[in-house]
Simulated scan of single mutants.
Amino acid sequence: MHIDKAALGDLACGAAFLGSGGGGDPYHNRLIGEARIARQGPFQLIGLDALADDALVAPCGWIGAPAVSIEKLPNGSEAARGLRRLEQLLGRRVDAVLPIEIGGGNALAPLLAAAELGIPVVDADGMGRAFPESQMSIFSIRGLSACPSVLTGPCGSLAVIETPDNHAHERLARQLSIALGGDAHMVEYPLTGRQAKDHAIPGSISTAIAAGAAIRAARANGAAPFEALFAALRGSRLYPFAGVLFDGKIVDLEREIRDGFSCGNIVIEGFGGAGRMDLAFQNENLVARRDGTVCAMTPDIITIMDRETADAITTDRLKYGQRVKVVGAAAPWMLREAHALALVGPAAFGMADPYIPIETLNPWRTA
């Protein structure tokens, strides 16, 4: 499969939704990707089954506060420099890359790196959405090491990270990203082809493209874009339940950069006196409460979208007065297992609420 200009736009749209508010705004990477397609042709996308078992696969993406990336643009060489350094460390060529997370701009970043090295992108990712911390990947959940990893900044700085565990890796990488201005590129969790087949979340890139394409087609045909999105997600089988959680206007917003993350709270007032919704985020939206009652929580996806266009609004793009729909979707099943919830569920973010699946909390669960 190849990703041409139209598919790239669909990927940007679908990945923005799957980011649950995080992963970075895909706009800048989309522009760079379109320019590269114009010069070199479409990006190459392969399935997990196309990998040799002994292939070297490099997950990669950006680490830092998404709000920083709006004003502090990359120089364009960070990913390729990181991948080439990994090749030096391991003494062999990288055969393919994949996104460490499918959410937001991080879904597109590996395409640009792959084109620079002349290698394909694998139709899979490491999170099935976006999460704020490195150890929240499926590879860490399944016991794989993030190291050696390579972190690069736009100023030319490069650091190789080796730590005894993945929590220590996240802490060190986070502090380095802060020192580099709050945003840096990281190549991590180097995998064999066999490990990628066994553990990566399959089909997430093609699912994001299908979701974006469904929204685009609905707009063009005067159909309902939200219903088109939900149908595409259900058809993927990765995200079997999806629906609208709330409809209203943003009336309060608190956002700050804290410890290398974009953190804050959002208040949405429902139309026609339909109550209110409160959301908390750490790069990504973590929990949504409707009139004080939880209606969605991590690892399930919570995305704020423009109520007319169905454009996903990342947490760094939220503004007072925006008229929005809050949309939820079930996370991939592997993120809902008990050992996974210890790393990506509510308790991992200090919340006392026990995890309850989004389809149990909402009336559209049987749709």
Results as ranks from 00 to 15, higher is better:
29 N>Q: 15
15 A>L: 06
203 G>N: 05
16 A>P: 01
359 E>R: 07
115 A>K: 05
261 F>E: 03
16 A>R: 00
185 H>M: 14
40 Q>R: 15
221 N>G: 14
279 L>V: 14
320 Y>N: 14
187 V>P: 04
220 A>T: 12
5 K>W: 13
119 I>K: 02
323 R>I: 10
355 Y>W: 11
211 A>T: 11
196 A>D: 05
310 A>P: 00
269 E>S: 14
156 G>V: 13
318 L>R: 07
303 T>F: 02
187 V>A: 03
128 G>L: 04
233 L>Q: 05
225 P>A: 07
95 D>H: 13
9 G>Q: 12
116 E>R: 09
332 P>M: 09
146 A>L: 09
350 G>W: 11
160 V>K: 03
88 Q>R: 11
10 D>G: 03
204 S>D: 04
337 E>R: 15
289 R>M: 06
188 E>S: 07
272 G>L: 12
163 T>K: 08
105 G>S: 12
263 C>V: 15
64 G>V: 13
364 W>A: 07
3 I>P: 01
276 R>H: 14
35 A>G: 05
60 C>P: 02
358 I>P: 01
125 D>E: 08
5 K>I: 15
193 G>R: 03
228 A>V: 10
130 A>P: 00
239 Y>L: 12
269 E>I: 12
144 L>W: 07
37 I>C: 08
342 A>N: 11
208 A>T: 06
205 I>E: 01
189 Y>W: 02
296 A>T: 11
219 R>T: 13
172 L>R: 12
101 E>P: 08
85 R>K: 15
101 E>C: 06
141 I>R: 02
142 R>T: 11
193 G>M: 07
51 L>R: 04
301 I>Y: 00
140 S>N: 09
100 I>D: 00
205 I>Y: 01
14 G>T: 10
